[in-house]
Structure formats: C-alpha cells, structure tokens
Design a protein around this nucleic acid. Structure first.
Lengths: 176, 176
DNA sequence: TCTAATGCGTTATAATATAACGTGTCAAGC
DNA sequence: GCTTGACACGTTATATTATAACGCATTAGA
C-alpha cells in the first residue's frame, strides 16, 4: 500500500471499520436463504477488509493465495453470487466490486467515487432512484435496476488538492 | 434544431430517425471548436445510423470496412473524442457508446436501457442529477460527473412480453 | 440409495481497452 | 519559403476484464 493511496474511509467519515465490517459479516452469516460457502464468505471478508472497491482479479489473487482456486471464474462466481444476494455491489465505472455496507435495508444505492484517492462511498439513493423512476415513467419505461455512480472529489481530497488532478488513469490492478 | 429533439418523451416512440440524425450531425458540423475529422465524423454517423448503443469493436468493424484503420485505438480515439465534445455518451453497463441526441443542451443524461430489445434512450436527468448532488453534498462529496443508467423494459417490450425474460446475456458483438 | 441440483476447480478463449511509436498534415511564426 | 510544434491517425503489441464449457465432489430431497 503506497502512501498516496491512504484514503479517507468509505463513508468519508472516520469510524471503526473492523467493527462495521464485523457487523455486516454477522448479518450475512445469519441471513436465511444465503448459502455462504467458504469461498463466498472469504470473498465477502476480502471486500470488507479492503475497504474499497476491488477488481475481480484482485480478489482472485487473495483467494488463490489462501488455497482457493486461482482461475477467474472462481472470483467472478463468488462476486456475482454476493451481488445477487445484495451483499456486494458492482461499480461499473471501475470494473470493480465493493461490499454492501447496509445489507438488508432495501436500498437503491448510489455510489460516490473519488477520482483522486479512489475511495468509494455508498450514498443514500432513494431520492435519486425516485427521480429516475419518475423520469422513466414519463416515457413509459419500467425501471428494474439502476446504476448510479458519481465521480468527483471526496472531502479529504478536495481539501488536499482543490485543483490538482491526483487521478491516475486507474487500472484496477494498479490500486493495490 | 427541431422540436422533436427537445422532447425526450419521444425517445421510445417511432420517429423519422434519418431526420433527427441529420439534425444532430448538422449541429455537430456547425459546432465551433470541434475538429470533426473524417474518422470522427464517420464514427458519429455510424452511431447515429445504428440508433442504438454500439461497442467500440462494432464501430471499428464499420470504420475498417470503409478504409479507415482497423485497429482498436482508431475506434476508441474517435469515440473518446466525441464523448469529450458531448457528442456521444458511453453506456457503461453495455460497454458501448451511443450518439448524444441533444448535443448543445447542457444536460446530465440518464439512460434507459431495455433489457429485452437493448434500445437505449436518453432521459432528462436534471432532477436525478440534482438529487444525487444533494445526497453527495450531505457527506461533503463534490460531484463532477455522474453515470446514471436504468435497466428495465421499454414500453414496446413490456407490452409484448410483460413477464417473459427476453434478455440474452448480451455480448455487445451479438447485437447486430 | 438414488438422483437432481448446486458448487467449485479447471482449461480455454472471448471481449474490452490501452501503451507506445512512427508518420503525415497543417498552421504559426520566422 | 522554411521550420517547428501540435495534433491526428495508423500501427504493433499487450494489458485487463469476463465468460463458456467440462468434470468431479458435495449436498438435498425423493
């Protein structure tokens, strides 16, 4: 981990992450109807520990290092499953995945992605989803799922470099 | 600029596409500060004619067939340029690109993607962007650009198959 | 137990995207 | 006219992200 990647935490406010990650995991384990196999559970833990969006191949590396399979489908399957169960989200702009920080609460998440430090925060998206559904309704379109991702500057980076462009082109592999 | 271009209501409605495409192209050509070279112009035409989102490699195929370069960067550069100029948009869920139907009007577009027929419509996104900016502001995040993409059913497909799942996994190449 | 469904690891390949270099073109300044 | 520098384009090569398809093991249920 390089210094420049030191980042404000996910919610952009300091908190005890070990604790909130633990809470999420406890919730997931307790969840009925979810088959949290070893790979899946470990994948969720990896996302929670990373505390930021990870590419599938980043997750795969970690899984492989721990004796799980080392081929892409292993990671993709676990990630897809977690996403289906609402335990993880896919960040399309980054071709990456992140643990859901509010599983269980029915929510239509919006994501805030800092272009400088690559932190990703989940923002309450209910109003956004509502506005979108209305706009869609006006043209007769039925929204089933929505991707809402904002790119910008998190408070920390805005403070540190109001104008400077800290952003690298950001291949996912390079994040670590 | 003709009226129908300012009425996103008609996005999914039948209309004279040759005409609206022509309007957009005329606008682009007249636009000051935009260097619409042959590849770029043809790329925009291709997007306009296709009338749906095209993958970079789809665009490339067409360009190559007309004597332009046949390597990926040719397509990617033209598409990126058009996007920078606000003449095209990237649809991240599809890894695809589409011509902007309302160039010039400052807008924060939302996209409605039909999972059955893959049509893509640009919906007025001002209110959505507003809601997003507010949610972001609450955590101190500054939004610079946003991706808003809804997946669902367009009126036509909803009518044709209210429940059936017309969606294929949808590789982009397969669209044509 | 038998069977069907599911999960996992594997091989192989597909699909999407970018880095980096060389050449041509054109307009600005001399 | 020349030179120069920015830009665009075509190219080679490679990186990154993602899926298809097969076989075996385990599990859930009849």
């Amino acid at each position: 981990m390089h210094d420049h990647l030191q980042q404000p935490d996910l919610a952009f406010a300091p908190h005890d992450h070990a604790q909130c990650a633990g809470d999420v995991m406890a919730f997931a384990v307790a969840l009925g109807g979810v088959r949290l196999t070893p790979v899946r559970k470990r994948t969720l833990q990896i996302l929670l520990e990373a505390h930021r969006a990870l590419g599938a191949y980043d997750v795969l590396e970690r899984l492989a290092a721990e004796g799980f399979g080392n081929q892409p489908p292993v990671a993709y399957r676990a990630l897809e499953y977690l996403e289906e169960q609402g335990l993880a989200h896919r960040i399309r702009r980054l071709n990456a995945f992140t643990a859901c920080m509010h599983p269980g609460e029915a929510h239509a998440p919006s994501f805030l992605i800092c272009r400088a430090c690559h932190a990703v925060a989940e923002a309450p998206g209910r109003l956004v989803a509502q506005a979108l559904a209305e706009a869609a309704l006006a043209v007769g379109f039925t929204v089933e799922r929505a991707t809402v991702e904002a790119l910008g500057l998190c408070p920390g980076c805005a403070m540190a470099a109001p104008d400077a462009d800290g952003a690298k082109p950001a291949t996912l592999r390079g994040f670590a």
